[in-house]
């Protein structure tokens, strides 16, 4: 109910908003203004300095940002991973030793591996089946929109949506979590507290990722299926291929590249995502994964050495996936 204090608070909230927006608009305007000035000044230059100057002005800021924001930090993180918690003493490979031998980190690595295998395979598989089903259906734009929708929202939002689905209540009380209600209606008198039940909770968390990524897989694969020339499908049908046979020997080989790109893309996202675990369990109850452990070590425990070592491990795990992915996409683009 709006009380006097609330109205006052609302007032100050608007003032606060106005100030922040003014600052933001000012920053953007200032940024564009400075650029225009530089453009104007550099545009005056003539003769043999004009081209080097153009190169410097156009590319310089980007290069500087990349060096300061990515290249130097990349090298420094590798360096820090060989130092102790506050980077005062070199410790050799002991941070990596810690990561590979500690009991609790074993659990983290095992969970991460399960995520890496299960979530992408299920999301891509489901996406493929849905893409086949929706192909040539009437009103497919609507299905695709609704299935793709989770991809537009944040993983934090998605996690809250699903945390509510998994909400636990004593079975004697009216249920508010959909999953418990469903279990009870199906005759399971006393369903567990889902989020706390290890190892089931890992898979419940993966469902959030699958929920988000399936629509992505479906939309991409559906486009690939549509791109298969009609003559090929037609020829296969004339040769007597039907249903599953057609799917196995024509559809899948024709979209193989796309299929693998989708799979690796979801794998990369899965490997790097820490939002779901952080929002739903905070890494407790045996659900911790690499990306969230890296964050906790670095910014909660303030152990820079261990955090950096975990980041490097993550980096090494991602490299082959991204490299493969980028090469494939590039090939496909050249092909067109």
């Amino acid at each position: 109910m709006p009380t006097a204090t609330a109205v006052h608070l609302a007032d100050s909230a608007w003032t606060d908003a106005t100030i922040k927006f003014t600052n933001t608009v000012g920053a953007v305007a200032g940024f564009l203004g400075v650029l225009l000035l530089i453009f104007f000044a550099a545009g005056r230059a003539t003769g043999r300095f004009s081209r080097p100057l153009a190169v410097l002005v156009m590319i310089g800021p980007a290069i500087l940002l990349l060096l300061v924001g990515l290249v130097i930090p990349l090298i420094r993180t590798v360096y820090l991973s060989f130092y102790n918690d506050d980077s005062t003493k070199a410790v050799g490979g002991s941070n990596y030793g810690w990561a590979l031998t500690t009991e609790s980190i074993h659990q983290v690595l095992w969970n991460t591996l399960q995520w890496l295998v299960v979530a992408p395979l299920v999301a891509t598989g489901t996406g493929l089946v849905l893409a086949l089903l929706v192909d040539r259906l009437r009103g497919q734009a609507l299905y695709k929109s609704l299935l793709f929708m989770p991809m537009a929202i944040s993983l934090v939002g998605a996690s809250i949506i699903w945390k509510f689905v998994y909400q636990d209540r004593d079975p004697s009380q009216p249920q508010i979590g959909l999953l418990s209600q469903l279990a009870i209606s199906l005759g399971w008198d006393d369903p567990p507290n889902w989020i706390l039940s290890h190892p089931l909770n890992n898979y419940l968390l993966m469902i959030v990722m699958i929920w988000v990524q399936t629509g992505f897989a479906m939309v991409v694969l559906s486009a690939a299926i549509k791109a298969i020339p009609d003559e090929i499908t037609e020829a296969a049908r004339l040769d007597g291929a039907r249903g599953f046979q057609l799917f196995r020997h024509v559809t899948v080989p024709m979209i193989r590249t796309t299929l693998i790109v989708v799979l690796t893309t979801v794998m990369i996202t899965t490997l790097k995502a820490f939002d779901i675990v952080r929002t739903m369990t905070g890494g407790n109850f045996g659900t911790q994964v690499l990306a969230n452990e890296m964050y906790s070590q670095s910014f909660v425990q303030f152990n820079v050495g261990r955090g950096s070592a975990l980041a490097v491990i993550l980096f090494l795990a991602v490299i082959p996936l991204v490299a493969y992915n980028i090469v494939q996409l590039r090939k496909e683009r050249e092909h067109r």
């Binding site: 924001g69 990515l70 930090p73 990349l74 420094r76 993180t77 820090l80 790097k272 990306a291 890296m294 964050y295 670095s298 910014f299 820079v304 955090g307 950096s308 975990l310 980041a311 490097v312 993550l314 980096f315 991602v318 490299i319 991204v322 490299a323 980028i326």
Partner: peptide, 9 residues
């Protein structure tokens, strides 16, 4: 290729 995590600290 570089994940954000590599640059944060």
């Amino acid at each position: 290729v570089v994940p954000l995590q590599m640059a944060l600290i």
